[in-house]
């Protein structure tokens, strides 16, 4: 990521499609496997990630002038942890139900490689506003893929979408869709479809 195009449109397209964090960079896979069996949980989780990526990028970019090089990773981690705890506190205080459902996963946002990856690859060498935008769009790219996985998993695993019954009662839920391994091959299929579409488009792969 040496000379990055920092125009907002370019960043958007890059993060949502041409170098989507999930299916091009294959980052943040652990959470993609863990939380995607229910759409509601996935939505909240990915909103959390989007928020954290955006603001940690912004903060890293603001502080980069003062940051000694050798401790920059430490500081980035500190900033990310800060925002993750904020998300956790806000969920506990205002959405206790969801906070209970997500359990330990919110805390685990900190281990999401996308956040640190964007801080290091983009925010460290760009201005605050493009950095914020980059973080938010990366989060959205992550959200997009996870939501697609979650649609399949919730629909086939429970017969519901966002908790509403969609498929008839006669439908037999596919237990494996509820379990993490299903996300593994669904993700594989999505990467496959995505790359095939990209090749057809003729974009540099």
């Amino acid at each position: 990521m040496s000379d990055v195009d920092t125009r907002p449109g370019a960043i958007l397209k890059n993060n949502l499609w041409t170098s989507n964090p999930i299916f091009m960079q294959v980052l943040g896979i652990c959470s993609a496997l863990a939380v995607t069996n229910l759409l509601t949980n996935t939505a909240i989780m990915t909103i959390g990630v989007t928020f954290v990526t955006g603001f940690s990028n912004l903060t890293v970019s603001l502080l980069k002038k003062f940051m000694p090089r050798k401790v920059r990773m430490m500081v980035q981690t500190l900033i990310i942890a800060f925002y993750v705890i904020i998300v956790d506190i806000v969920l506990k205080a205002y959405l206790p139900e969801i906070s209970r459902n997500l359990g330990p996963y919110v805390g685990l946002i900190i281990t999401n490689c996308i956040i640190m990856g964007r801080a290091e690859a983009f925010a460290q060498s760009n201005d605050p506003i493009p950095s914020l935008w980059d973080g938010v769009t990366s989060g959205l790219g992550y959200m997009g893929v996870l939501m697609v996985i979650a649609v399949f998993r919730e629909l086939l695993g429970f017969g519901t979408l966002f908790g509403f019954q969609i498929l008839p009662d006669a439908f037999v839920p596919w237990t494996i869709m509820v379990m993490p391994p299903s996300a593994f091959f669904l993700l594989g299929i999505i990467i496959w479809v995505g790359k095939a579409a990209m090749n057809r488009e003729g974009a540099p792969a």
Binding site: N37, L38, R100, L102, G103, G157, V178, M179
Partner: peptide, 11 residues
């Protein structure tokens, strides 16, 4: 009240 079971599975 509280559990840490796998969401959507044990949860």
């Amino acid at each position: 009240v509280d559990d840490n079971e796998t969401p959507g599975l044990g949860g």
